[in-house]
Design a protein around this nucleic acid. Structure first.
Length: 962
RNA sequence: GCGGGGGUAGCCAAGCCAGGUUGAAGGCGCUGGCUUCAGGAGCCAGUCCCGUAGGGGUUCGGGGGUUCAAAUCCCCUCCCCCGCACCA
């Protein structure tokens, strides 16, 4: 049993005291990596454990490779979720309180403190056992803690202020209006976290077509303005209440429910009066100015947009079905005073042609599905199908002169533009699904925020800079490049200010807060000086200070006088930044590619065009026993619990071993436990090796040469893996394969002095290979092995080419193959043999083998020619049938064998007889035999009662068992 | 719809780009043997099917093709996951 927690604590303290991870600028080459700082709205769990262990492993590896490594960390406080969580505590929401008190064991009497967002954040940032700080320390992360900060620190705000001054000066902050989910009760925008229901519901923009109804306007809402050319009538729901309302200078008729929506969306809404719809009146369609009737329809939802709907039966299944119903039921029409003959005359007007459909797609689909009533739920699916196909493949018909031949996707925009330009249309936002309800219980509406500030990512010049930056970056995995490129193309104005939440006031509009993704784009630069800023009065951090630190602009003497910051300190900050920047690698979750990671490229491209990050590594998501983790629901495994149960090294190794960083990770308790046992086995193996006498070098025999050669392969494998951020592959080589090989060697090597000598050499290297992955136990064993200093700062092992021994590896795999064959035979003969005879192929068969190998190399084997050539060259006295059989077998064998081994074998370095004789004692033991004999197949004195020797082939000796 | 990723033996997961160590690494699970002051310990072996001599049959979502040779290359097809914004 290993006392993991004791070892963890011992070495974490030792590293801290030695200030091992507090790098200073020097003349050593540097390696600077960062990972997205945590948003501290809950405990650190194993998903985060993985996120932060990956960079730690890389940092530790690079440190051993001789780099001066900077790995800093901070905490993200900015934004709404923490504030939202504090609010939920204030409201004492039962489910949330339960998670806090039961899952996270927060005493109930402390709850009122959690109503304060800052306390809340601090608690999970660094105060409690559940915190990120404690979790990372417990995992042994090699972080320079001197540099930690939070995004609400005054100095950080100064840095954000500097940054936004720069962006503003570049003309990339623009103002506009922006739709948001809005709670009228709270008077605030709400995020998805604030919703009781309606999470993920989108805001869609409808076009309003202004139909003239006498002096009034009926604004019909549609997502398909291009279909205006096919309008046959207007729909209103007779069961709904419509009102007349002043909007701007116009008199609109909309559903009662629409009035508030318009108001929230910034329309100038005046007096509201009830109105009775006169279904006998005609309305004038905008743009085409034709008169159409108003018809009653129950499918019209008064709570969706304006409650007024235009009818395009050729392209809208609802419209088509509703019209059919009216045509079949004239009595309904009569009750509204509508002339049934007029309605009976209405025909769908097709304006879009779509491959795969007839004249009117909506009619086709309705007929195919057999839909007869406007309340049929399948109309949703029918509408989606028609919409999708027309949008993707449809073109405007030739009669729609102005837009003839235009793809629907374009026509939609063009028609909309025309409607807006002629004031025959307007726009309105609506939710894509309902209901949307705030946690306070109030229904949420779409609110349009005026005076919203945006980062103008749509700016072509900025995009170009971002693309240039991206082109120079190394991306892991490489497939992410397309995602980044796509994101840069498609990103447009990003609303970068908020009304609520913690953060930095926008410099030009202090009533707004810089939004939390927008304040976290270039903070990697801030880390380089964050420890020094702790001794500086934040008020003295003017833009000029940052200009000097980041750009070297200005005179430090003068700057010192104006700011009261020591010149040395200013120069030291400048030196830190100049030394560490650019960032070598940025690591983050791949779900952040569409926003944070691309933003960080944009902002670097603007602020540090010559110092863009060199690379990005994107991580996959983590799940727990196949289930999505959720801090707010409490289904997580907290880091401090995992470390307490398994030890830091087990957690680290498990996190690194099952998948590569960019793949999705699944934590399974049973596998974590298994990993702990594996690690304990390693420890007892290592301790056994350490207890062996330190033998002097003696001649290395076959198993020893094999072991040392395999070791070189694993050094190479692990090195390549970590160079490519492949933690899983590194673990495979450094841990699992090493375990297998060492065990095999211990079993195989019979001479104690050779075994001791080789194993001690192996362990010296092995501990260093494992140190980035499981640093605590490696330090412990490194010390026990009698090595000086920390293994964490020891040299990473280099491949010793002199120990690479392909012959030894070939010989060993040859022995293994023979053992395998013998085992198979014993299994089939179903009794325990006493005696084993092995007959290795005679020289002439090797020559035939070489010739056959040449044939195989060129592709198709002409067996006839091969036989002829072998006969001629070897002058054999052999029955033709026998030779044919033999060569066929050889070709088959060659096809099955590894190419490199074959080449080596064919060169004749392998003395089969000698290798098998060396291994014969081992083989005897393996099968509990009493005798093992090795003969050449042409040895006249051999014991061979069943004439097996004739079956021998190169690399496949004949076998006889009795 | 747009963009990205993926389907491999009971499970996870390598391999695929550069076709030939591929019945297919490694881990987990399971089975057997050994060891053991039977304990969720350790060690060894096995783990697609058939087979009293190292063999044969059939496998990498499905179908087709290229090739002496395909999990790997090409074509078609089915299915799954993630992102699409104001949310960190």
């Amino acid at each position: 049993m290993v006392n993991w927690s004791e070892i963890d604590a011992k070495w974490q303290a030792a590293w801290r005291e030695a200030k091992l991870f507090e790098p200073e600028p020097s003349d050593k080459p540097k390696f600077y990596l960062t990972v997205a700082y945590p948003y501290v709205s809950g405990p650190m769990h194993i998903g985060h454990g993985r996120t932060y262990t990956i960079p730690d492993v890389i940092a530790r590896y690079k440190r051993m490779r001789g780099y001066n490594v900077l790995f800093p960390m901070a905490y993200h406080f900015t934004g709404t979720p923490i504030v939202g969580a504090a609010k939920r505590v204030a409201r004492r929401e039962p489910a949330f309180v339960k998670v806090l008190t039961e899952c996270y064991r927060i005493p109930r009497e402390m709850l009122n403190e959690f109503e304060n967002p800052k306390f809340y954040a601090e608690y999970f940032a660094r105060q409690s056992e559940l915190s990120y700080r404690k979790g990372m320390e417990k995992l042994g992360h090699s972080i320079d803690w001197r540099r930690e900060f939070t995004t609400v620190d005054p100095a950080y705000s100064k840095f954000v202020t500097w940054q936004y001054h720069k962006i503003q000066a570049a003309g990339l902050i623009v103002k506009g209006r922006h739709p948001v989910k809005w709670c009228p009760n709270d008077g605030n925008p709400v995020t998805d976290h604030d919703l009781l229901e309606g999470e993920g519901v989108e805001i869609v923009e409808f076009t309003l077509l202004k139909y003239r109804y006498g002096d009034q306007i009926l604004p019909a809402a549609t997502l398909r303005p291009e279909t205006v050319f096919g309008v046959t009538n207007l729909w209103l729901n007779p069961a709904a209440s419509y009102v007349s309302v002043r909007v701007g200078g116009e008199d609109w008729i909309v559903s009662e429910q629409a009035v508030d929506k318009l108001r929230h969306q910034g329309f100038d809404v005046g007096e509201v009066r009830p109105v009775k719809i006169d279904f006998t009146k005609k309305v004038e369609v905008p743009l085409i100015h034709k008169m159409v009737p108003i018809l009653p329809a129950s499918f019209v939802d008064p709570d969706n947009a304006t409650g007024v709907v235009g009818s395009v039966p050729a392209h809208a299944p609802y419209d088509h079905v509703a019209l059919l119903e009216l045509q079949e039921n004239p009595e309904i029409l009569l009750s509204y005073g509508i002339d049934p003959d007029e309605v009976a005359a209405i025909r769908p007007i097709s304006l879009i042609e779509v491959p795969g459909y007839g004249e009117s797609p909506a009619v086709d689909v309705v007929e195919r599905l057999g839909i007869r009533h406007q309340k049929d739920p399948r109309l949703e699916e029918a509408t989606a199908e028609v919409y999708r196909n027309e949008f993707a493949k449809g073109r405007m018909r030739s009669w729609v002169t102005k837009y003839a031949g235009m793809p629907v996707s374009q026509a939609k925009k063009a028609v909309r533009e025309e409607l807006l330009a002629t004031n025959e249309g307007s726009t309105m936002f609506e939710f894509s699904a309902k209901p949307v309800t705030c946690r306070c219980g109030s229904p949420v509406v779409v609110g349009v925020v005026e005076d919203q500030w945006f980062l103008n990512y749509a700016d072509e010049g900025w995009k170009r800079k971002a693309r240039d930056c991206l082109a120079r970056m190394h991306l892991v995995p490489p497939e992410t490049r397309e995602q980044f490129e796509h994101t840069i193309d498609w990103l447009h104005e990003w609303p970068c200010t908020r009304i609520v939440g913690m953060g930095t006031p926008a410099p030009w509009a202090p009533n707004w807060i810089i939004e939390s993704l927008s304040d976290s784009t270039v903070y990697m630069a801030y880390y380089t000086i964050s420890h020094l800023l702790k001794t500086v009065d934040p008020n003295s951090l003017t833009d000029e200070v940052f200009d000097f630190v980041f750009y070297g602009k200005g005179d430090p003497q003068q700057l010192s006088r104006s700011t009261n910051i020591d010149v040395e300190k200013l120069q030291r900050m400048r030196r830190e930044f100049s030394y560490w920047y650019p960032l070598d690698y940025r690591m983050s979750a791949n779900e952040l590619i569409p926003n944070h990671l691309t933003f960080h490229i944009f902002h670097h491209a603007l602020l540090f065009p010559d110092l863009c990050p060199r690379g990005v590594v994107s991580f996959g998501i983590a799940v727990l026993e196949g289930q999505k983790m959720s801090s707010s629901k409490g289904n997580i495994v907290a880091i401090h619990e995992a470390v307490a149960r398994y030890g830091a090294d087990t957690v680290r190794l498990y996190l690194m071993s099952t998948v590569e960083p960019w793949q999705d990770f699944d934590w399974r308790a049973s596998e974590a436990l298994a990993m702990q046992k594996n690690l304990e086995r390693f420890v007892s193996l290592a301790e056994e090796i350490i207890s062996l006498p330190d033998e002097k070098m003696s001649t290395l025999d076959q198993p020893a040469r094999w072991m040392l050669s395999r070791l070189q392969g694993h050094i190479r494998g692990a090195t390549e893996a970590l160079d490519n951020f492949e933690t899983r592959k590194a673990t495979q080589h450094s841990f699992f394969m090493m375990m297998q090989d060492v065990r095999w060697f211990m079993k195989r090597e019979s001479r104690p002095e050779v075994r001791a000598h080789v194993l001690r050499r192996v362990l010296d290297v092995w501990l260093r290979l494992l140190a980035p992955l499981v640093p605590h136990i490696c330090e412990e064993l490194w010390e026990k092995l009698g090595k000086q200093g920390f293994v964490s700062t020891a040299d990473w092992p280099a491949v010793d080419e002199r120990l690479v021994d392909r012959e030894a590896e070939l010989a060993e795999s040859f022995v293994l193959r023979v053992i395998d064959d013998v085992a198979k035979i014993i299994k089939v003969m179903k009794r325990q043999p006493k005696k084993l005879c092995l007959y290795v192929a005679p020289p002439w068969k090797w020559r035939a083998f070489q010739i056959a190998l040449e044939y195989c190399r060129t592709g198709a084997v002409d067996l006839g020619r091969l036989i002829k050539e072998v006969e001629e060259k070897l002058e054999l006295h052999l029955a033709k049938a026998e030779l044919v059989r033999l060569l066929q077998q050889m070709v088959q064998e060659i096809r099955k064998m590894p190419a490199q081994e074959l080449d080596l074998a064919a060169s004749g370095v392998l003395d089969e007889q000698a290798v098998l004789k060396e291994a014969s004692d081992f083989i005897r033991g393996e099968f509990s035999l009493s005798e093992v004999h090795v003969y050449s197949a042409d040895d006249q004195s051999r014991y061979d009662p069943q004439h097996r020797a004739a079956l021998s082939l190169p690399l496949r000796p004949a076998i006889y068992l009795e």
